[in-house]
C-alpha cells in the first residue's frame, strides 16, 4: 500500500466556478471512467445552486419529503457513491478517482485519503483527527444526514464530523468524494426528513477557526499536501463530463428512483 510520500502520476482539477449538482456528479463519474483507464485525478470544487445529494441506494422517496423539498426550491441529485444525504452549500468538495489498487484496499484507501486531508487541514491550524473504528457493528442507516455520525477513519474535530465522504468501486477503479464543511448547514437535512431523524453532529472550519474560511485557502492547503504526498501533478488534466452521465444525473427519474 502506498505510504504518504509516493510519486504518483496524477491530474489536478480545481474548478474555476461552482457547478450544479448534476454537473458535479457527472464530472466525478467521468473521472471514475478515466480512472478505470489508469488515470488518477484530484478534483476540488463547489456547488451552485446549493444542492441536497442522496446516496446511491438511499430510499429518498420514503426517507425525505419530496413535496417539501420542491416547495423550498432545493436542487437535488443522487450520487454515484453510497452513504446518506448531504446538504452541499458552504463547503469544499474533494473527489479522488484512481485505479482500484492505487491506494490499496478499500479500507486502506479510505484511511490514506482522510489522513491526507487531515494533514492538509492541520496546515491551516485546524485541530482535527481521524475517528476511531467503531467497536460494535454499525446499525443499518436510519433516517438522518451523512453528518449525523462519523464512520471509522473519517476526519473529526471536537468529536464532531468535519469531512463526510463516500466511495464507489467499479470497472477496476474507485471514486471517493467528500464534503469539507466551511460552515455547518446540515440541519437542513433534518428539516426535510420524514419522521424522527438523528441530529447532525457536524462541525465546520469556520466554527473551529473562529473566522470565515473560503474555498481558495482550503484548496491551497490540500494541493500542497497532495504534492508533498505524490509529487507534482501532470499538466493538461482538463476533463469534460461525458454526455450520457450528464443525462443520468440530471434525470429526476435517477434522483428519485427509490
Amino acid at each position: 500500500m502506498p505510504e504518504s510520500a509516493v510519486a504518483l502520476s496524477w491530474g489536478l482539477l480545481v474548478d474555476d466556478r461552482p457547478r450544479s449538482g448534476f454537473e458535479n456528479m457527472a464530472l466525478d463519474a467521468t473521472l471514475l471512467r478515466a480512472a478505470a483507464a489508469g488515470h488518477t485525478f484530484l478534483r476540488l470544487y463547489q456547488w451552485s445552486p446549493a444542492c441536497l445529494s442522496f446516496g446511491r441506494h438511499e430510499p429518498a422517496l420514503t426517507r425525505y419529503d419530496r413535496d417539501r423539498i420542491e416547495e423550498m426550491g432545493l436542487d437535488t441529485v443522487r450520487r454515484p457513491t453510497g452513504g446518506r444525504a448531504v446538504w452541499h452549500n458552504e463547503e469544499v468538495t474533494y473527489a479522488l478517482a484512481a485505479p482500484a489498487n492505487a491506494f490499496g484496499s478499500l479500507p486502506d484507501s479510505y484511511a490514506i485519503i482522510h489522513a491526507m486531508i487531515a494533514r492538509a487541514l492541520k496546515r491551516m491550524d485546524v485541530r482535527c483527527g481521524l475517528a476511531p473504528a467503531p467497536r460494535s457493528r454499525h446499525p443499518a442507516p436510519s433516517a438522518g444526514a451523512c453528518f449525523a455520525s462519523p464512520a471509522g477513519g473519517e476526519v473529526i474535530a471536537n468529536g464532531r464530523k468535519l469531512v463526510g465522504s463516500a466511495q464507489t468501486r467499479e470497472g477496476g477503479a474507485f471514486l471517493q468524494h467528500g464534503s469539507i464543511l466551511l460552515a455547518d448547514g446540515q440541519d437542513l437535512v433534518t428539516t426535510v426528513t420524514r419522521g424522527p431523524a438523528a441530529t447532525p453532529a457536524a462541525t465546520s472550519l469556520s466554527a473551529l477557526l473562529g473566522r470565515p474560511v473560503e474555498f481558495p485557502e482550503v484548496v491551497t492547503a490540500i494541493v500542497r499536501e497532495a504534492r508533498d504526498a505524490w509529487g507534482s501533478e501532470r499538466t493538461g488534466a482538463a476533463v469534460d463530463p461525458d454526455p450520457d452521465l450528464v443525462a443520468r444525473f440530471s434525470d429526476p427519474g435517477w434522483t428519485w428512483r427509490r
Binding site: 446516496g55 446511491r56 441506494h57 454515484p80 457513491t81 453510497g82 452513504g83 478499500l106 479510505y110 454499525h138 442507516p141 464512520a151 465522504s165 463516500a166 466511495q167 464507489t168 468501486r169 467499479e170 470497472g171 474507485f174
Partner: peptide, 11 residues
Amino acid sequence: GTIEAVKAVSE
C-alpha cells in the same frame, strides 16, 4: 448487482 456498505458501493 451492486453492494453498498456504510461508506462504499461496489460491483
